[in-house]
Design a protein around this nucleic acid. Sequence first.
DNA 1: CATTCCTTTGGTATCGCTACCATCCTATAG
DNA 2: CTATAGGATGGTAGCGATACCAAAGGAATG
Lengths: 342, 342
Amino acid sequence: MSVGGKRKRGGGQVNMHDIARHAGVSPMTVSRALREPGSVSEKMRRKVDAAVREFGYLPNRIAGSLSSKRSNVVGLVVPSIRNSLYASMVQAISEVLRANGLHLMIADSGHRLADEEALVEALLAQRVCGLVLHNTRHSKRVRELVRSTGVPVIETGNLPADPLDMAVSYSNFEAARAMTLHLARLGYRRIGFVTLPLRDNDRSEQRRRGYFAALKEQKLPVDPSLVLEAPGGFSEGGDALGRLIQTHPDIDAVFFAGDVLAVGALFECQRRGWAVPGRVAIASFDDLDLLRHTVPAVTTLRLPRQEIGRRSAELLVNRLRGATPERLKIDVGFEIVQRDST
Amino acid sequence: MSVGGKRKRGGGQVNMHDIARHAGVSPMTVSRALREPGSVSEKMRRKVDAAVREFGYLPNRIAGSLSSKRSNVVGLVVPSIRNSLYASMVQAISEVLRANGLHLMIADSGHRLADEEALVEALLAQRVCGLVLHNTRHSKRVRELVRSTGVPVIETGNLPADPLDMAVSYSNFEAARAMTLHLARLGYRRIGFVTLPLRDNDRSEQRRRGYFAALKEQKLPVDPSLVLEAPGGFSEGGDALGRLIQTHPDIDAVFFAGDVLAVGALFECQRRGWAVPGRVAIASFDDLDLLRHTVPAVTTLRLPRQEIGRRSAELLVNRLRGATPERLKIDVGFEIVQRDST
DNA sequence: CATTCCTTTGGTATCGCTACCATCCTATAG
DNA sequence: CTATAGGATGGTAGCGATACCAAAGGAATG
């Protein structure tokens, strides 16, 4: 009974025109019925819905985006997808976006600035409607691109002095400083510090600066040989602790700039039979869930990763909804969680 | 000196036409120069490159995709972004895709089948060129959509009896069975089992079936009260172990279907002073890096998460390159890692 | 009953790019 | 020197939707 004799089936091939024809309405009505059902009469809506269901029609958002010059995809660049730190932030972002009909395109820069640039470029070529960068140090080209495209951007992971656009984070400097002061106040005098790799990573650098600043404030001797750089990993944490204790037998606390390092160190103590905090106290950065459950539980900094994700996404959504652009720098703060390891 | 008097600047506004005008060539030549530089003369390429650089031009891939009916985005649905298990798979996928000029759109189903459906629909509306689903049980609508759109799909997380298209995984049934047999061979006779939630989760179910199958093979008594269901978490693992030991003081090993549960149980033992494996042996599913470093290190199943990601992405890429569609089911296998906890 | 106004519907012109085919030019062969 | 092939370029017509404006329909008003 169909007109052309050739009846298209199977969502992949049908377009809005076909639906319009079969519903006996214009394509514009179909478009409206799908996007703002309220702007169309009940009768029309029913006809459209019926045709849509009959064909299993899926609107082509690519065409929609091109035509409306609005996309519904947000781009995210993290230093490492694998790192569980980012996972809870990503999850929070994803949730908020989804509740607002947006999608998430995710990319991994491997902690390399040059890769960040390539990825930002690729994401902008996909015409993402917003960008979240877990990094506050960018190449010149990235800054230019962001400026010239005018895409809303959230920087996170650190509080930049001069944000590209909006920033949501805690201060790595203040957090590391606070923990070091905390250790000093607990009476520790020889406090070691194990940093994550410093290359292309403003966050690591800020943490180290915070550590030094606190020592100075407390008039504790600043000894560079108490600072070790280690890639993040359980073994590396254990190794670092081992080396520190060997070279500085009088060390009484070690502050690890990464949670996995700290846990690795704790396990090393368990293996060697060193009492924590009796022989050496251990403090960590970042509140991995694990830290609450180890024996002893590890003193750490709680950073509201989830809140960072949520608020970042919310800011983005507001801006897309028309909020007037304004440079924002939101400090979500942090919290010292004193547990049994110090 | 410019012609129209109005000189466009700033990557966001310039299009291929503008570049063509300023380079003194046709838009087609620009398009070709950018996509297949080899198909264009050196002279043209140079003119185009110069104009592209002058304007900081970024091609609009949305328009490109619409026009060519090819997209360069792959969709991924995982049950929970936060769960670190998926992280290494996602990372591997992301790497392979990127090396092939593809991007990754990621979504979180929260372990809910209905949400998976909505997400698959949304991703297909974005016209992703491929789909990875970390789940092998799907709603009817999902199966229809996949069939009718003809998009290549990888299922993973389990080996489905009848894959939608391609599947890359290990067998949860065989893995759980193997570990249970392993425990039995080590001489354990009262083996408890702690499963993750079974609802909407074929993987959990298969694991439990594998456990029961092994017990039967070994002619060990099958006692349903030795099986507990627990949401994944450190505390939950500890609780489950506590309950099992209380109700079955003669229990000599517990097999946890989730790694976090197992670690939680191990910590609980440390707190209570129960020797592992002296009082009770602990075995885990899934080789979280952590398990190798705890004291004692935990016996577990190594599942090649990264390989799964890599091969999934590779299959997808091959298919997009024109490999003839064929139903595939790739079993990547697993490995029992015997450590000190059993 | 005619006029006005508001709501609902439809037509047309893009959005920025690529497919496809026509054209042109140069190189090689006859 | 002409014929022909083959590679490089350009023109045109979409891809599948939306924006914008025009037209039509219906209710409210004098």
